[in-house]
Amino acid sequence: MSRREPREREFTEFFGSHALGLRRTAYLVVRDWHLAEDLTQQAMAKLYAAWGRTRPDTRLAYARRIVVNECLSHLRRHRPESAVEAVPDLPSPSAGDHPLDLGAVLALLPARQRAIVALRFLDDLSVEEVGRLLGVADGTVKSQTSRALDTLRRHLPDLAEELR
């Protein structure tokens, strides 16, 4: 058996166990499932190249970091189109009959805040873990989380009321 076979088996098992969660995190950052899939695949290719230099106990954190960095780099290189308040050719909904649209409100957050929200609340990472993963201070994670939650509460008052 060659040295490559156990490596490929380990990587295949890791990918099978974690790819969907990593893709979900990528989606929350980039807001596009197909792009999230592509960026997750790119991140996994980078992880595979570095596989021999990673430790089993830190691989998931390293994979998350690669995925988030891929997403943020992509968004820096390809600025999203600016959103408008309402599509001009559709009637505006009345104030009382709009459903809660968390996805639309998440799109209002800057990419780094979306990444922090995804890592903190979707992946259930601590402030310290998110700070290490993104290479920022714990205080930055806390302030960006606070700003993101303020934005969510402001744009989703119905959701804020339900959470009380």
Rank of each mutant, 00 (worst) to 15 (best):
E37M: 04
G21W: 08
Q41P: 06
R3T: 07
R164M: 04
Q113S: 12
V136A: 01
E161Q: 12
T145S: 11
R120M: 01
D124S: 11
A49N: 10
R64W: 09
S82Q: 09
L134R: 09
P93D: 11
L47I: 00
I66G: 01
R24H: 10
A111V: 10
T151L: 08
Q42P: 02
A26C: 06
V130Q: 09
F14A: 08
A43T: 00
A45Q: 12
Y27Q: 09
L122R: 05
L75W: 02
E10T: 05
E162H: 14
L134S: 10
L134G: 00
S17T: 15
V87S: 14
G131Y: 01
P157H: 03
L152Y: 11
T140E: 03
L152K: 02
A95G: 05
D38W: 07
D89R: 15
M1Y: 10
P91A: 15
L100Q: 04
V84T: 05
R59G: 04
L149S: 10
V67T: 04
L125R: 13
V127G: 07
P91W: 13
V117M: 04
I116R: 01
V136N: 10
L60Y: 15
I116D: 08
R120E: 03
R59K: 08
E129V: 14
V30A: 08
I66H: 08
A111Y: 03
A86E: 09
V84D: 07
E37S: 01
V117D: 03
R59C: 05
L119E: 00
V130T: 15
E128S: 13
A118Y: 01
A45S: 11
P93F: 11
P6Q: 12
E162I: 15
P157S: 02
A95E: 10
P93T: 09
T12R: 08
L75K: 05
E85R: 14
P88E: 14
W51G: 07
P56Q: 06
T140G: 12
V141C: 00
L28P: 05
E162M: 13
L35V: 00
F11N: 03
T40G: 10
R79P: 13
T145F: 00
L119C: 04
G135F: 06
E8S: 14
L22P: 00
T54S: 13
P99D: 02
A115V: 03
N69C: 12
L100T: 15
P99E: 13
P110M: 03
L134Y: 05
V30E: 06
L20T: 09
L106V: 13
E13C: 06
A148K: 07
R77K: 07
R24K: 08
L39N: 13
H155S: 00
P6I: 13
L60S: 04
D97R: 15
V68P: 05
R24N: 12
A118K: 05
R55M: 09
V105W: 07
V30H: 12
C71A: 11
T58H: 13
L39A: 07
P88C: 14
S143Y: 09
A118M: 05
P80D: 00
T140Y: 03
G139K: 03
E70T: 06
R55Q: 08
Y27G: 00
P110W: 04
V30F: 09
H18L: 03
R24L: 06
R3K: 10
P157N: 02
S73H: 14
L47W: 07
A104K: 07
Q41N: 05
L133H: 10
D123E: 15
G131S: 03
S143G: 06
R24P: 01
H34M: 04
D101S: 11
T40F: 08
L108P: 01
